[in-house]
Design a protein around this nucleic acid. Sequence first.
DNA 1: GAAGGCATGTAAGCTGTTACATGATTCT
DNA 2: AGAATCATGTAACAGCTTACATGCCTTC
Lengths: 181, 181
Amino acid sequence: MDVKTLCLAVLSQRDATGYEIRKQFAEGPFAHFQKASLGAIYPALTKAAEEGLVTVTAEAQDGRPDKKIYSLTSAGSAALLRACETAPGDDQYRSDLLFQIFFACLQHPERISRLIDKRIAEYEAQIANLTAKEETCAGQPGMDFVRGLGCAIYSAAADYMRQNRGPLLEKLRSETRHAAE
Amino acid sequence: MDVKTLCLAVLSQRDATGYEIRKQFAEGPFAHFQKASLGAIYPALTKAAEEGLVTVTAEAQDGRPDKKIYSLTSAGSAALLRACETAPGDDQYRSDLLFQIFFACLQHPERISRLIDKRIAEYEAQIANLTAKEETCAGQPGMDFVRGLGCAIYSAAADYMRQNRGPLLEKLRSETRHAAE
DNA sequence: GAAGGCATGTAAGCTGTTACATGATTCT
DNA sequence: AGAATCATGTAACAGCTTACATGCCTTC
């Protein structure tokens, strides 16, 4: 999904500024499967406004740039619906961490150990975050399905890492090929 | 990881042509967490050769372009190791499917049903593929850890979808707001 | 006093995808 | 006959990230 559609998605939940939209992608319910940066959001909103998908209301602020509050128009709603109805592309998943663990035997077991522990903690934070949103999602079936799937995946990943961390490190330590340092 | 490093990773397993490297990213052990297209691989290999990270051996072929077989040099190995030792970036996950399911209530329940069934089948194919590679990975602890994690995640996702598919569709069907068609 | 949050916007640059260009062989 | 596989490479284009530009307010 392009950033413009992503913005429409956030605005379908409530009016927001560009800054707030970015926050939604960092913390909100989309956070675990879509993201966007400010440098992409602002031009996307300008374009969406030109196309009549959103309206802008400027709100004067003391000492700061005007706050521009964007709202979805009916044309914007229609565009969002159209995006939902087109055949979805494949999921994109890229992980530098898995790449590095793949070559674990080239590295120090201690480093691998630290990387895994850190990742488990990150998964736990994600699970806590998604669990906390349970009430927000209640009554919105699609939103709750996606939230639950996120929990299920992160839990499975964390469990796997907890269970296989030890055996992996044992195997690495019993090898001789790993870095000296 | 940039495409150049990805190529070094494949070449660390065995010598290969650009074409074969792409196949490794479509089917091989990296497939579920890294990908690369031919249009990126060929220039990356040329650059890696210029930098002395790989060597090239051209093999004449009848009626086809010469087959260029690339091999990793010790400088290339060192570059791969360095990439493994730098702090890994965050995982990138983007899913158009989850985006669409998020807005399930805007759409026809039948469409959502089809999307979920299709995705479950895709997960099952991934699991079968990774399970089939079990023997290839035996004895390579990092590789096997990553393979197992893939299985665990896809299994959890498929299970969640199987269990929550029915309840989701029921909720959608009992709503009035969904598209008419 | 420094860091971080609030608030917008531009532009350079990187990276990668898709399409184009070419062409034989093998499978259906 | 048509599609897929093998095989390389270029180039246009898209899309996004990062850094720059500006500046106040609040928290540590």
